[in-house]
Design a protein around this nucleic acid. Structure first.
Length: 112
DNA sequence: ACTCTGACTATTT
DNA sequence: CAAATAGCCAGAG
């Protein structure tokens, strides 16, 4: 597959930010998109995560939607893996949602 | 070149 | 408060 240089850059940025998410913290697609300069491209961030499988260092499980819902869990090899990994990092999950999400939220535009 | 789809979000009904 | 609607943009067929 062939990407335009800028497209590749987009992917790289998404992976970069996602990789920089601290242990035990989570962020949102929108936050990442905002950091990239286009909050409206939040879907592209999620789409980029779809290709994160080729990037093992990218903790896609730390990326959830804007309310802390684990919307991407169905894209993992095992549906419960995402929640499992998060709980392993001290993040409490209840009904596919991050408990006290705001507290675990990590904003790249603020902390990066 | 065209259409469909999606790990999103904000706004409106 | 739940459901529908509209932006958004890049990849795949």
């Amino acid at each position: 597959m062939k990407y335009a240089p800028e497209t590749q850059n987009f992917f790289q940025r998404v992976y970069a930010v996602t990789t920089h998410i601290p242990y035990g913290r989570v962020t949102t697609y929108g936050a990442i998109a905002k950091y990239l300069g286009a909050v409206k491209s939040s879907r592209m961030v999620g789409w980029a995560m779809n290709g994160a499988g080729h990037h093992p260092e990218v903790p896609a499980h730390r990326v959830v939607n804007r309310v802390g819902l684990l919307t991407g869990k169905h894209h993992f090899p095992q549906t419960n893996l995402m929640q499992q990994l998060l709980e392993n990092e001290g993040v409490v999950i209840k009904e596919d949602k991050v408990v006290n999400f705001k507290k675990h939220f990590w904003d790249p535009t603020l902390e990066l």
